[in-house]
Design a protein around this nucleic acid. Structure first.
Lengths: 233, 233
DNA sequence: GCAGGCATAATTGTCGACACCTTGAGAGTG
DNA sequence: CACTCTCAAGGTGTCGACAATTATGCCTGC
């Protein structure tokens, strides 16, 4: 399998084409709620806004559909996805399964060097977290970085593609729009550490189990916020 | 989650647009080896061949990339994927995990009526198989139909999307190009029956286990053929 | 006042043409 | 002979315009 199979998304490569650029901008806009959930996507409007023609814009829309940030109907158009409890549950069911698998594979496939680099990464995150206690953004970035590395460590290109290119933007959207809060931020570090420890011991089964629990806990956290939000409406 | 989230692929809906039509034709051509693995995809060439302009063709190519039938490089172009043992292993690792999950969810989510319909489907397949013993195509279609129904029964839209829209064309490509052969054809029926029985008993764990074994056996079957093929070259 | 149909406006799908990039062949040089 | 550079040819990325479809608002009729 050629290496470029892993570089389909412009997040992992330089944004060489206009379509890539626009994709990144719209992804950010949707994830951060700049384009609100449920809102209509007008192609002529967006094309003007990002100074491109409709051709690269439509290419970008196709990729946005691929990562579940918009939904399209032929001859009708696209809308930004709405966040829901059902959607969250479905998404995290998959995450538990797939990232569990990623852990098992990573425990077999990652090199000692890669594992050492991850340990260094965790140490770095720990120190910055102590300094900026409560600032969720850094925790957010650090958490995603941790998960990314394990997924890449699985060395399974299809698994990497699904998690990194197709599901993670939606995961980020839930987390950014519903906010990460409370004691989970500090507890997540310990869970990361335990998972990495299991991988370092080449104990794939344990890493799998711990990752599933880690993701399940994260889901419950978001689910609570989401249900509160829905009640407020 | 709206219903049309499940109808992104033209396989499950009417091919209303030119892009849909071309997509279906090229999918078939690649899966059946009409466009051979590794061959270059020339946009002007294909556009002439299918009597459309490059705009809908490129839309179709984007979706072909999504289901891993072609690989693209910016400013370079697209090639039909090559089949390999590594690719097969990666693909079936995912299938085991995801279809196992689908079984667990289907055991919870499927209605009694849906389960009865599946039993009727199996009976029908059994009778046609007895008649046309050895004809792999019908078995092929029947097997896919069985897996499709379980996946749909999971009621998880993301899972359905990944398996039915993104991975199954590649699975079909391996099976069609490497051929299904030997005693597996008849044994697969028994395995299907056992899986469905577990689902009917609402025993998700057992269905999960049986499905993983079923897929694993299928993989070993194809792997053998693939390795023989590579040795011949 | 309301339902239904019609015409208009706006949006999406498709087309052909152009600009830029990559690639491969061939000339030139060490 | 090997290596580099140039350049032409083909292909991809992008653009603006047209055709087909859908949404909107008005009008008519009940």
């Amino acid at each position: 399998m050629p290496a470029y199979a892993l570089t389909q998304s412009p997040t992992l490569k330089a944004a060489v084409t206009a379509s890539d650029r626009v994709l990144l901008e719209i992804q950010r806009a949707i994830v951060e709620g700049d384009l609100p959930p449920g809102s209509k996507i007008s192609e002529p409007d967006l094309a003007r806004r990002f100074h491109v023609s409709r051709a690269p814009l439509r290419e970008a829309l196709a990729r946005l559909e691929r990562c579940h940030l918009i939904e399209r109907l032929p001859n009708v158009g696209a809308r930004v996805v709405k966040l829901s409890v059902d959607g969250l549950v479905s998404l995290y069911q998959l995450r538990e399964e797939l990232e569990g698998l990623a852990c098992r594979l990573a425990a077999e496939q990652m090199s000692d060097e890669e594992i050492e680099q991850m340990q260094a990464l965790l140490d770095k995150h720990l120190s910055t977290q102590r300094v900026r206690d409560g600032e969720s953004y850094y925790q957010e970035a650090g958490d995603l970085d941790f998960h990314y590395r394990i997924i890449l460590g699985s060395k399974n290109p299809y698994l990497i593609n699904i998690l990194c290119d197709e599901l993670y933007f939606l995961v980020r959207m839930y987390r950014v729009q519903l906010g990460m809060n409370g004691p989970r931020v500090s507890r997540a570090f310990d869970e990361h550490k335990a998972i990495l420890h299991a991988i370092a011991n080449r104990d794939g089964e344990l890493a799998d189990l711990l990752m599933r629990r880690h993701i399940s806990a994260s889901r419950h956290n978001i689910e609570l916020t989401l249900k509160n939000n829905e009640e407020q409406i």
